[in-house]
Computed example of a mutant assay.
Amino acid sequence: MLQYTVRRLVSIIPVMLIVSVIVFLIVHLTPGNPAYLILGEDSSPEAIEQLEAQLGLDKPMVMQFFDWIKNIFTGDLGQSIYSSEPVTQVIMERVGPTFSLMMMSMALTLLIAIPTAIFVVWRRNTVLDPLFTSASLVGASIPEFWFAMLLVLGLGVAIPIFPVAGYVPIAEGFFTWFYHLILPAFVLAAVEIGLIARMLRDGMLEAVNQDYTKTARAKGVKESIVLMKHVFSNALIPTTTVIGVTVAGLLGGTVIIETIFTIPGIGQLLIDSIHRRDYPVIQGVVLFIAAIYVVINLLVDLLYAFLDPRIRYD
C-alpha cells in the first residue's frame, strides 16, 4: 500500500506539469492585454509598455513559462496582476466559501441518493422502479444554470424564502451559514443525486440475487439485513468511484453557481480573473482545482482497500 501510494504521488508531478502547460498556453494565447485593462482606454502606448515590463509581460512566452514553473516548485504561484497580492493568499481567502458549498452539496446528495436507492431496491419490481429511472435521468440532465435561475426566480423573487446572493461564514452562526448556502447547494446536489442513486441502485440490483444473498435468506436472515449487510456493502465499490468523481467535479460546478448566487469562492475568483486577464490567478486557480481532482482520485483508489479486503496494491 505504501509503495503504491508513493508511486501515485510521484505520478502527480507529470500530470500537473501537463496541466500547467495547457493552462499557460490557453491563458496567454487568449486575446487581451492586462496592462491595457488596468490603465484604461486613454493610456498611452509608453505607459502600457512600462507596465508590461513591470509585470514581466514583455518577456518571451517561453521565458515567462519557465519562470512560472520554477516558482511553482518553490511554492510560489506568483502575484496577482490586479491586486498585487500573492496568488496563494488570494486562493486561500476564497477556499472557505467554495469548500462550504461543496460539503453541503455532497451531504445533501448522499442523504437523498443513498436512502432513495436502498428504498427502490427494497421495493423492486414495483411501479417505483420506472418512476425512479425517469426521475434520475431528468435530474442528471438538468442544466445547472437553468435550474439555478428557476430556483432564484421561484424561491428568491416570487416567493422570497431563501436569499439568492451573498455568503455568511460559519463563524457568524451555523444556521445563518446554512440558510445562505442551502439553495446553491441544492442546485449542485440535484444534478448528482440521480447519478449516484442510479449507480448504487444498479450495483445493489446486481448483487441482490447472488448466491451469497440467497444463502442468507435461506438461513432466515431478514430482507432488510440482507440488503444492508450484504447487498449494500458490495455495491459500494463502483458507487465510491462515482462519489469521488462527483466531489472533484463539484469544484467545476461551483464556477457557475458561485457566479449566479454571488458567492465569493474560487469559482467566482476564476470568473473575475478571466475578465481582468489576471494571468497568475487564472493559472493558480486552475492548477489548484486540478491538484484537488488528482488527490481525490488517489484517495478514492486507496479507499477501495478498506471497503474490500480482497483488493491489494502490493
Rank of each mutant, 00 (worst) to 15 (best):
D42N: 15
Y179L: 07
A290G: 14
V191F: 09
P34G: 14
E172M: 10
N33M: 07
L251H: 05
A190M: 08
I91A: 13
F288M: 06
L153C: 05
K219A: 11
M92L: 08
D67I: 04
I159V: 12
L236A: 09
L131T: 12
A248Y: 03
V27P: 01
G156D: 12
S224H: 15
A135Y: 11
L205P: 09
L183W: 04
W177Q: 11
G78Y: 01
K229C: 13
G139W: 06
W122C: 02
I256A: 09
M103A: 09
V152E: 04
S80D: 06
I225G: 00
A148Y: 11
L9M: 12
I257G: 01
Q54C: 12
P14C: 14
R217W: 08
D67S: 14
E46D: 12
A135M: 15
A113P: 02
S136L: 13
S43C: 05
L25M: 15
A305C: 07
N71M: 08
V255P: 07
V21A: 05
I26R: 03
F119Q: 05
I225H: 04
E258L: 06
T133Q: 14
L37E: 05
S233W: 13
E85A: 12
F119Y: 14
S273G: 10
A117C: 13
K70T: 10
L236E: 09
G139I: 06
I193V: 01
F162P: 06
R198I: 02
T126Y: 02
P97C: 02
Y304K: 04
G32S: 10
A248L: 11
V87N: 00
A135C: 12
G249P: 03
Y212T: 05
V95N: 00
H180F: 14
P97M: 03
L17P: 05
I170G: 06
P86M: 04
I91S: 01
P130D: 13
Y82F: 06
V21P: 00
G96P: 02
S134M: 08
V27H: 01
Q210M: 10
T98S: 12
D272E: 15
Y4L: 13
R312E: 15
G139Y: 04
F288W: 03
P309V: 02
L307C: 04
G267T: 11
S43A: 15
F178Q: 00
P45C: 00
G220V: 14
G78D: 10
L183N: 10
T88K: 10
T241E: 04
L250C: 08
I112K: 00
Q79N: 13
S43F: 08
A135K: 03
S233F: 10
Y313Q: 04
T109P: 02
I263Q: 08
L29E: 03
Y212H: 09
A140D: 01
W122P: 03
I296C: 08
F147N: 09
Q50N: 11
I26P: 00
A140W: 00
Q3L: 10
